[in-house]
Nucleic acid binder design. Structure first.
Lengths: 113, 113
DNA sequence: CGTCTATATAGATAGTTGTCAATATACAAA
DNA sequence: TTTGTATATTGACAACTATCTATATAGACG
């Protein structure tokens, strides 16, 4: 699995997206996050493992706490891929628009005859 | 599974992302797409089913052909989610920046005394 | 030391996924 | 109607996922 695969797969779970949204507001410990969902601590820990493996979060050590932090560069890599697709698509439209403009011009010139 | 779940999950596979990139350039039939990957036709058909269920593509009927078209609105919904997260994160930084600016000001004023 | 708190790991289970070969369906064309 | 071409469906298999309970580890604090 490459990085984009892992990032998209990680974001395909609503619990993990919830974690991401929460971490966008700032660091949080595992137990903070457990408090947000009706899921057990091991389940949350496993979701965090997935997010970390995908490069979407990182973790520090503070005594027994393991504060989690959002890694926005990886999030940006995902957005970048989507925007590239959008650009190809729009390029397509640009080409189509140019084609239609050309057609219109041709029709106008034909009317002159 | 909700729409975002399905869209992210659909995009988590490299073959499906390849299909999306190809369709960004314009419509393509199933056999066009089969030609792009070293996978069997049923496998490509199953990927297309996933993309269609996720609302990322749509299909027409033209004789025996089933041209596939990218649905950019759904792609945009995914981008929107990512941008919202980014905005929360940046809002965070803005608040932090404001805090640091305030701190600097306080220190400056303390030096005057 | 023993105990409490925070987190990780292990093992089980039910459900989902990606892939294939084989077969079925839908339409076209001879 | 027979044949050919494009696509879908079926059934199988191995791999992976989300979740749980139970248990282990790591550090803080008495």
């Amino acid at each position: 699995m490459n990085q984009l695969d892992q990032a998209f797969a990680a974001l395909a779970d609503p619990t993990r997206r919830g974690i991401v949204v929460h971490l966008a507001r700032g660091e949080a410990s595992v137990s903070d996050l457990v408090g947000l969902f009706h899921l057990t601590q091991p389940t949350i820990s496993s979701h965090l493992k997935v997010l970390e493996a995908a490069g979407l979060i990182s973790r520090r050590r503070v005594a027994q706490l393991r504060p989690c932090k959002l890694e926005t560069e990886r999030l940006k890599a995902v957005t970048d891929w989507l925007e590239q697709v959008q650009e190809i698509w729009e390029g397509n439209y640009k080409r189509l628009d140019a084609l239609l403009a050309e057609l219109k011009q041709t029709q106008k010139e034909e009317r002159k005859k």
